[in-house]
Design a protein around this nucleic acid. Structure first.
Length: 729
DNA sequence: AACCAGATCAACCGCAGCACG
DNA sequence: ACGTGCTGCGGTTGATCTGGT
C-alpha cells in the first residue's frame, strides 16, 4: 500500500466509503434481487434481505489481502454452530498434494466436521451473509467446516489453494477463505500469516503467543470473521496467503471455515457475483454518484479507517475476481455485465499511467485483415483501449491499435469504444419511455439509428438498432402495425389499392404523400423502409403552414424547397439568416436540446412537454445548422388542418399495449423567417403537395416520384396483390 | 440430458461524406 | 480534379443465449 497507485486507490476507496456509507451506524441490506430468474439452485433461497454491516470490516493486511469483520456472527449463532458440531467431530484431514485425497497429517491436529449447506435456517443465514460479504455466490462455497482445537492443537502454516490438479479441476482454486471464530481463546490459537508483509509492523504485547510473533496474527474473538484471498489479482497463487493456527495454550478454540472457489465451469455463479457486486455498488451509488460528490474533510478523518477498509475489500474482491474474465465462461456472460465489472475494476485499480504498450515499428496493424484479430473483445483488450483513451483521449483510431498494443483494426477499436467502452453508455435495458421515444422517432425519421440514439443519452445507434430489430419491430407487428410505415396493415392495403388506382382517391392521396418511398436505389420496396411523417412548420410571419416531409421522394421530386438541401440530408439542413422561434418542448432525455415544439398531443412525450418551459426561446441561427434535436422533439405528425387519418388508424393505436403511439398528434413548429421570400415560394409548392393528388402534384413539376415507382414496378404491384389476396383468403 | 429453433447482441461490412494534400 | 485516410452510418452476420420439447 505504499506505492502512489495505492495512495490513489486509498483516496478512492475513502471516497467510496464516505459516499456510500455516510451513516456508519447503518447496515447495508442485500435485498431480494437474487430472486432473478438467472439465479438458480441454492442461490434462489436468498429471497429474503441479507443484512451485513460494512463498517465493521477492517483491512488487516494487503499482502496477503485479509479483512476482519467484527461481530460477523452473533453469540447465539456461534453457540448454535458448536452445538451442531460437537457430537460429530472427527480428526481433521488435509488434502494430499499429489492425489488431492483427504489424508491424516501431523500438521493438523484439530478435529472437525462439515455441516451441510443450508443445514438449517441459522446456517443458511450465515451462508447468505458470507455470500453478501464476499460477493461470491453460495454455490461456489464449500460446506462450512467446524473445527475444534483443544489445548496444544494447531494447524501448521499451509495454503488454502490446491497443489493437486484433481482438486483444481474439480472446483478450481479456493480463492477466498472466510474463517469465523466461534469462541474466545484465553491464550494462543491465533491465526497467523507468516509471510505477511505487515508482520513486522504489527505490535504484539504479552497477550500474544510466541507462535503469533512469527507472522501477522489475528486473535480469536468469538463472532469475528477473517476473510483472506489466496490468489493474486492475476489469478496466480499468493504465497503470502500462507496461514496457520497457532497452538491453543489456554482454553479451547472453535472456528468455522467457509472456502470459496472460483470455478471456471460455473458460469451462473460468476454471473451471480458480477450481478451482486454491480447491484451493490449500483444501489449505494444511487444515493450519491461516485463522481459527483466530494468527501468532507471532517468525515474523512473520522471515517478514514473504515473507508479504507471497506473500499479495499471491494477492491480486493475485484482484483481477485477480474482475472476470472480470462475464462471462457466469463466471456460468455453478458458482456455488459463483465464490462461493468471491468469498469468498476478500473475505478479502483486505475490503469498505470506509466505503463504504455509499444508496438514494433513498421506497417500499421490496422486493415491488415489477414493478421488482425477479430471477433469478441477480451477484457484485456478492453483494458488496453480504456487505458489508452484515458491517457490520450479519442481520435485517430487507426493509430490506436498500434499505440495501445492491440492487434486489432482501428475501426474495430473505434466501434468497441463507441458502442461499448465509452463511460457514458448505459448498459441496462431500455425503459418504456425510451421505447416509446424510439418508436416515435422511427415513425418520424425512419431507421436513422444514429440520430435516434443521439436523442437517448447513453444509447448507441447499435443499441437502438438492435432493440428495434429484436423487440420493437415485433411488438408493432403483433399489434398489427407495419413497423415500416407505422400504420395498421389494413390501412396500408387500402392505401395501396388507392394509389394503384384501385380504391378511394382521397386515401390514395394521403398514402402517396406519406408512404411511398424508394429506398436509396438499393431495393424497390412497396413501403418506405424509413418513412418519416410530415412535419408542419408554422411560419409565424405569414401564418402559412409549411409542410415538410423529410426523406420522402415524392416531396423531393416536387418541391423546390427540399430539393436543395434535401431532406435526405436534413441534419445538414440550414436555414440561413433567420430567427427561429420554437415553442418550448421538454427535453425528456437530454439537456442538449434547448428548444422544441408545442405539441398538444396525447403522447407521453408531448404530455410532458406542457410541464416545462413556457417561454418561447429565440434562437438566432445565421450560420448554425438546423437542429435535429429540435426537430426530433417536435412530434412530427400532422397538423389539425391536415387530412385526418382514417378511423381504423386510431383504433390500432389505442391498444392496451404499453406502446402509446401518437398517431393523431399535432405538432406545430413556429418559424419566424427573415427570409420570407424563399419560404413563401416553398410554401406554395408544399401547399400543392398537401392538396394535390399525386397526379396533380406531378403535373406541377413534371413526373412524380410515385408515378415513377408505379410505372417502373407495376408488375411487382400486381404480384403483391396476388400475394395479399392469398394471405387473407 | 439432448436437441432444436428462435432471440439476442456484439461485431463486422461496405458505403458515403468529409478533410486534406 | 483526384487520391487518400478517417469517420459515421445503416445493414447484416454469426456466436451465444434461452426456452421449449
Amino acid at each position: 500500500m505504499g506505492s502512489s497507485s495505492s495512495c490513489h486507490f486509498l483516496a478512492l476507496s475513502l471516497c467510496f466509503f464516505l459516499i456510500f456509507f455516510p451513516d456508519l451506524s447503518s447496515s447495508v441490506k442485500i435485498p431480494g434481487w437474487l430472486a432473478d430468474k438467472q439465479t438458480q439452485g441454492s442461490v434462489s433461497r436468498l429471497k429474503k434481505s441479507v443484512t451485513f454491516n460494512p463498517t465493521r470490516v477492517t483491512q488487516l493486511s494487503w499482502s496477503p489481502r485479509a479483512f476482519l469483520y467484527k461481530g460477523f456472527l452473533s453469540d447465539e449463532e456461534c453457540d448454535h454452530l458448536i452445538d451442531l458440531a460437537k457430537d460429530k467431530l472427527e480428526k481433521s484431514m488435509v488434502a494430499d498434494n499429489e492425489s488431492g485425497k483427504s489424508v491424516e497429517s501431523e500438521v493438523r491436529t484439530s478435529s472437525g466436521m462439515f455441516l451441510s449447506k443450508a443445514q438449517d435456517e441459522v446456517v443458511a443465514a450465515i451462508e447468505d451473509r458470507i455470500a453478501a460479504w464476499t460477493f461470491l455466490p453460495i454455490e461456489n462455497g464449500e460446506s462450512i467446516q467446524i473445527l475444534h482445537y483443544e489445548n496444544g492443537q494447531k494447524y501448521e502454516p499451509h495454503f488454502d489453494y490446491f497443489h493437486d490438479k484433481v482438486n483444481q479441476e474439480l472446483g478450481g482454486h479456493r480463492v477466498v477463505t472466510v474463517l469465523m471464530y466461534l469462541s474466545d481463546v484465553e491464550k494462543g490459537g491465533e491465526t497467523i500469516f507468516p509471510n505477511s508483509e505487515e508482520k513486522i509492523s504489527q505490535p504484539k504485547d504479552e497477550s500474544w503467543s510466541e507462535c503469533a510473533r512469527n507472522g501477522y496474527a489475528v486473535k480469536t474473538r468469538k463472532g469475528d470473521a477473517l476473510l483472506f484471498y489466496s490468489l493474486h489479482p492475476d489469478a496466480t497463487t499468493d504465497p503470502k496467503s500462507l496461514h496457520g493456527s497457532c497452538p491453543v495454550i489456554e482454553g479451547e478454540k472453535w472456528s468455522a471455515t467457509k472456502w470459496i472457489h472460483a470455478s471456471a465451469s460455473k458460469t451462473l455463479n460468476i454471473w451471480w457475483a458480477v450481478k451482486t457486486v454491480l447491484d451493490f455498488v449500483g444501489r449505494v451509488a444511487k444515493h450519491a454518484p461516485l463522481h459527483h460528490r466530494t468527501c468532507p474533510r471532517s468525515q474523512m478523518k473520522s471515517n478514514h479507517a473504515n473507508a479504507v477498509n471497506w473500499g479495499s475489500h471491494l477492491h480486493a474482491f475485484l482484483a481477485t475476481f477480474t482475472p476470472l474474465q480470462k475464462d471462457a465462461s466469463f466471456l460468455s456472460l453478458k458482456c455488459s455485465s463483465s464490462l461493468k465489472l471491468l469498469e468498476l475494476h478500473h475505478q479502483y485499480i486505475p490503469p498505470d499511467p506509466h505503463h504504455h504498450h509499444h508496438c514494433p515499428m513498421g506497417r500499421p496493424l490496422c486493415c491488415d485483415k489477414s493478421n488482425v484479430k477479430r471477433g469478441l473483445w477480451t477484457p484485456e483488450e478492453d483494458a488496453k483501449i480504456l487505458a489508452y483513451v484515458s491517457d490520450h483521449g479519442t481520435g485517430n483510431w487507426t493509430l490506436v491499435p498500434k499505440k495501445a498494443g492491440l492487434n486489432r483494426c482501428g475501426k474495430s477499436c473505434r466501434l468497441r469504444w463507441t458502442n461499448y467502452l465509452r463511460p457514458d453508455l448505459k448498459h441496462d435495458g431500455f425503459t418504456p419511455e425510451e421505447e416509446e421515444y424510439i418508436i416515435n422517432l422511427h415513425k418520424a425519421i425512419g431507421s436513422r439509428w444514429s440520430l435516434i440514439a443521439k436523442q437517448l443519452p447513453g444509447r448507441t445507434d447499435n443499441d437502438v438498432k438492435n432493440y428495434w430489430n429484436t423487440k420493437l419491430r415485433k411488438k408493432l407487428l403483433k399489434l398489427g402495425i407495419d413497423p415500416i410505415t407505422h400504420k395498421p396493415f389494413s390501412q396500408i392495403f387500402t392505401d395501396f389499392g388507392n394509389i394503384s388506382g384501385l380504391g378511394n382517391n382521397n386515401a390514395g392521396n394521403h398514402f402517396g404523400r406519406r408512404n411511398i418511398h424508394y429506398n436509396n436505389n438499393k431495393k424497390m420496396m412497396l413501403m418506405s423502409k424509413s418513412e418519416p411523417s410530415t412535419i408542419v412548420l408554422n411560419e409565424s410571419s405569414s401564418n402559412n403552414n409549411v409542410i415538410m416531409n423529410p426523406r420522402t421522394g415524392f416531396v423531393q421530386e416536387n418541391s423546390n424547397l427540399y430539393s436543395n438541401p434535401s431532406w435526405e440530408f436534413l441534419p445538414q439542413f440550414q436555414v440561413p439568416n433567420q430567427e427561429i422561434i420554437i415553442q418550448p418542448n421538454p427535453n425528456l432525455f437530454s439537456d442538449q436540446v434547448n428548444s422544441s415544439c408545442s405539441s398538444p398531443s396525447s403522447s407521453t412525450i408531448t404530455q410532458l412537454s406542457s410541464t416545462v418551459q413556457q417561454q418561447p426561446q429565440i434562437i438566432t441561427t445565421p450560420s448554425s445548422p438546423f437542429s435535429w434535436s429540435e426537430f426530433l422533439l417536435c412530434d412530427p405528425i400532422s397538423s389539425p388542418d391536415f387530412p385526418q387519418e382514417p378511423d381504423n388508424d386510431q383504433g390500432m393505436f389505442s391498444s392496451t399495449d404499453s406502446l402509446t403511439l401518437a398517431e393523431n398528434e399535432t405538432t406545430v413548429c413556429q418559424i419566424n423567417s427573415t427570409n420570407e421570400k424563399k419560404f413563401e415560394n416553398n410554401i406554395g409548392s408544399d401547399d400543392q403537395a398537401i392538396n394535390n393528388t399525386p397526379a396533380e402534384a406531378s403535373s406541377s413539376s413534371g413526373s412524380s416520384f410515385v408515378d415513377a415507382i408505379l410505372c417502373q414496378d407495376s408488375e411487382m404491384s400486381s404480384k403483391l396483390f396476388e400475394l395479399l389476396d392469398t394471405s387473407f383468403d
